[in-house]
């Protein structure tokens, strides 16, 4: 059993502390928004997770390209780690958004460009893991995963772009209510502090989880090789 590096242990601890501070800032420190009430506090974590998840998906597409050029399984493990953590974070983003939308827009879900793209993105990366599960050969699994992550990373922004373009050109589809305007608010200085702190905290948490997941990937690789060695 490989001991955790000290840096990772420090990062683990820092993540927990940052999460606690960020929670305090979001729940207590920031003032209550007047129109929407307490539910607006969900917004800080919503943006924090969304930002890191999108960053992770973009990173995954970059790792895809690097893997396809270099053919080094290290980049495959980077990619899996990034996508898995992002998938979890993005799920939180969607659930939080939905919870916020219920009192703010009076519905759990609307087929607005962002929500639709978010749902499709989540499905793409769920499919990514289903694809990987069906392949035993590590090199093939890595190649196929990289190709699919690349296609997915390309397709998701295209979808967003397409829906957004069509919906703004056909305002009838939206039905008169523009969700972006409905529920918008201006941040006070305290809110802004909580907001930027949440962004920072979730970035650190993301890196920490990513690192932990990366070590898990290395371990998986180790065990797989040992299995091959033993079975021979």
């Amino acid at each position: 059993m490989q001991p955790k590096p000290v840096a990772l242990k420090v990062l683990d601890l820092a993540s927990i502390i940052l999460l606690a501070i960020s929670t305090y800032l979001a729940l207590v420190f920031a003032p209550t928004e007047r129109v929407m009430g307490d539910v607006q506090r969900v917004f800080y974590f919503h943006i924090g997770t969304a930002w890191t998840a999108l960053l992770g998906f973009i990173l995954a597409a970059v790792f895809s390209v690097i893997y396809l050029i270099r053919k080094d399984l290290k980049w495959d493990r980077f990619q899996v780690a990034a996508i898995e953590v992002s998938l979890v974070f993005f799920l939180i983003t969607i659930v939080l958004g939905s919870i916020w939308a219920r009192p703010a827009w009076n519905t759990w879900w609307t087929w607005d460009p962002r929500l639709t793209t978010a749902a499709i993105t989540e499905l793409i990366y769920a499919a990514y893991f289903m694809l990987r599960q069906g392949i035993d050969d590590p090199d093939k699994r890595a190649s196929f995963g990289a190709i699919y992550a690349l296609l997915g990373g390309l397709s998701a922004p295209l979808t967003f772009f397409a829906i957004r373009l069509f919906r703004t050109i056909h305002p009838v589809v939206i039905g008169g209510t523009n969700p972006e305007a409905d529920g918008g608010f201006s941040m006070t200085a305290d809110m802004r502090l909580a907001f930027f702190f949440a962004l920072f905290a979730f970035t650190v948490i993301f890196i920490d989880l990513f690192w932990n997941r990366l070590r898990l990937g290395d371990l998986q690789d180790n065990v797989e090789q040992l299995k091959l060695k033993v079975s021979m």
């Binding site: 499919a127 694809l131 069906g134 196929f144 699919y148 296609l151 397709s155």
Partner: peptide
């Protein structure tokens, strides 16, 4: 071409294809 090389090939193609082909 990818999905036929997997174990779950009969069910995998639509799951892979639909979300990516949406645009």
């Amino acid at each position: 071409a990818m999905s036929v090389q997997t174990r779950t090939r009969d069910i995998l193609l639509p799951i892979l294809l639909f979300p990516v082909a949406i645009p």
